[in-house]
Every structure is written in structure tokens, then in C-alpha cells.
């Protein structure tokens, strides 16, 4: 009896404290995830007003998805479009944001009115993606201001939305414009978290800005950079609203702007409510996202600073 009393278990508090998260996670994430996988094994759609299925079809939906039709595996094209538009937006975004973050946090430059600039660069993120898309659609349309300028200068017009690369660039640029502010603020927080004495020590030792950036800022910023890269990747793979609105849902020209989620929307959206194929596409997106996140994680964590960082975190916890 006495013995039992003495060993008071605090473990239950742990469970109680994580319970709210767990419940929300199970209801809002795990159950939908499981039901998506489950649905992907069924033929289940509407034909006009008639329901077809649900009939269990095994892996048929996945087979249909990856069977070449007229020489194309559409889902791979869509994955390529998505990745391409993400890279076109994300790389300039990372470089630009890093530059801004370094400039804003530099003690040497000590820029005035930082709050103002931070607010301004974050602004685009407050505008809805659909509003942004409509704006750019109007700007670059055949009768829009951009074409009026081109017309005035060269006496011809350029139809942006009939050229695959032009349309993709516009999509990438909108994403860049919307998210660089967010990234800059995250990176600034990361840089400001670096011990100032390191920068001081470096400057006393005679390091120039470039050396400080590559030897101190960048290595110590790695964890934040990794976080930014992975969240951006996941966001990029789920690219939907901008290309959907810019191309009026068609993904044209030449389906070059069809993203994975747009394909998903095709299946489960208006028309046939094809939950079987929709489920299969979702599972494929899930696998791609997981795999790519792992690759990004592995490639960025390597490079020597992994043990250092691990030690640091351990120390902080202690």
C-alpha cells in the first residue's frame, strides 16, 4: 500500500495535456486521411443524376492514373507543372528574402523605419490569392495595361495566356510576391536569434560581410532555412488557387498550368464527384509530398552542422 502511494505517476498529466491536440488531430486529420485512402479503392461517381458505385475495384484507380493515354501520363505532367511553377517562385523568393533579411538585420547598416518596411513587404500576403490572380489576369490580358504598353512600344501585342512559359511565370511571380514577405520575416527572426557576440567576434577578427554571411549567418540559419524550404515545398505542391483562377480552371495553355490539386478538383469537383479517382490522386500527392520533404530534409541537414546543432538543442533543453 505504502509503496504504491509513494510512486505518484505524473504521466497522466502528459496525456491530458496532449489530449486536445490528439482529438483535433484524429478528427480533422487522421480520419479524413484514412477515409481518403479507403475511398481510393472504390469506383464511386455520379453519372448525371445517377450514382455509380461505390464498388470495390482494388488498385484500378491507381492503374488508370498511371496508364499512358495518347502517349501521356497526365498525372506526371501535372506533378512536373506543379514542381516547375514552385521552383520558379521559390528559388527567387528564398534568395530575395535572405538578402532582405540580412540587410534589415545588419547592425552595420542599421536601417531606419524597419517596422514600416516589414509591414509593407508583408502586405501582399494579406491580399487573397484569388484577388491577386484576378488582378494579374486583368493586367496581362489582351486588352490589359501591360499589353497596352507593349502595343505602344512595339505596335504588336503578346498574348501571355497563350504561352505556356509566360503563364507559368505569371503564376510563379504571384506566388513569389505573396510569400516573400512572410519568408523574410521568418528569416529575420532566425538571424536575430543568432548570438550577436559571434558577429562582433568575427568583425574584430577582420571578417568582411561576405565572410560573415557565409561562415556565420548561413550555417546558423540552417534550421530556419530548412523549415522555410519544407513549408514552401508543401505549400507549392498544393498550389491551386492562383493557376485555377488565372486559367479559369482549364490549366491551359496546353495544360501547362494544370497542377496536382487542380486535377484533384477536376475529379471531385462539379461534374462527376469521382471520389475514387480523387482519393487516388490525393494519395499520390501525399506520397510525393512525403518523399520530397524527406529529400529536402536530408539534403539540407547534411553538410557538417548536424551534430553541432543537435548538441546546441540538447544544451538548451538542459
Amino acid at each position: 500500500m505504502d509503496k504504491k502511494r509513494k510512486s505518484v505517476s505524473y504521466a497522466k498529466w502528459g496525456y491530458i495535456f496532449i489530449a486536445p491536440f490528439l482529438i483535433v488531430f484524429i478528427v480533422c486529420q487522421l480520419i479524413p486521411l484514412a477515409s481518403t485512402v479507403y475511398n481510393s479503392f472504390f469506383e464511386n461517381y455520379m453519372n448525371g443524376l445517377d450514382q455509380v458505385g461505390p464498388n470495390f475495384v482494388g488498385f484500378q484507380n491507381y492503374i488508370t492514373l498511371f496508364t499512358p493515354k495518347n502517349g501521356n501520363i497526365d498525372i506526371l505532367n501535372y506533378a512536373w507543372n506543379t514542381m516547375l511553377m514552385w521552383i520558379m517562385g521559390a528559388i527567387p523568393q528564398l534568395v530575395f528574402s535572405l538578402l532582405l533579411a540580412v540587410i534589415f538585420t545588419s547592425a552595420r547598416l542599421n536601417i531606419k523605419g524597419q517596422t514600416f518596411f516589414k509591414t509593407v513587404i508583408y502586405m501582399p500576403n494579406l491580399v487573397m490569392a484569388s484577388a491577386f490572380s484576378m488582378l494579374f489576369f486583368t493586367l496581362f490580358s489582351n486588352v490589359g495595361p501591360v499589353n497596352q504598353i507593349i502595343q505602344a512600344m512595339t505596335n504588336t501585342t503578346f498574348n501571355f495566356f497563350l504561352d505556356p512559359m509566360a503563364t507559368r511565370s505569371i503564376v510563379a511571380f504571384i506566388n513569389f510576391l505573396m510569400w516573400f514577405g512572410n519568408t523574410t520575416i521568418l528569416l529575420m527572426a532566425g538571424i536575430m536569434g543568432i548570438d550577436q557576440s559571434l558577429f562582433e567576434a568575427a568583425s574584430i577578427d577582420g571578417a568582411n560581410s561576405t565572410q560573415v554571411f557565409f561562415k556565420i549567418t548561413l550555417p546558423l540559419l540552417m534550421p530556419i532555412l530548412l523549415y522555410v524550404a519544407i513549408t514552401s515545398l508543401i505549400g507549392g505542391l498544393q498550389m491551386f488557387d492562383v493557376p485555377q483562377i488565372i486559367t479559369a480552371g482549364s490549366g491551359n495553355p496546353q495544360r501547362s498550368c494544370m497542377t496536382l490539386i487542380m486535377a484533384l478538383n477536376r475529379y471531385i469537383g462539379s461534374g462527376s464527384k469521382n471520389y475514387g479517382m480523387g482519393g487516388a490522386v490525393s494519395v499520390v500527392i501525399f506520397i510525393i509530398t512525403g518523399a520530397l520533404s524527406m529529400i529536402v530534409f536530408k539534403s539540407m541537414v547534411q553538410g557538417g552542422d548536424k551534430p553541432k546543432k543537435a548538441k546546441k538543442i540538447k544544451g538548451a533543453v538542459k
Binding site: 455509380v52 493515354k69 477536376r266 461534374g271 469521382n274
Partner: peptide
Amino acid sequence: YSFVNEKYPA
């Protein structure tokens, strides 16, 4: 055709 397949499986 791809569009049709995606929209109308029947």
C-alpha cells in the same frame, strides 16, 4: 480527351 476523362468517367 484528358479533360473529358477527368470530368466524366462514364
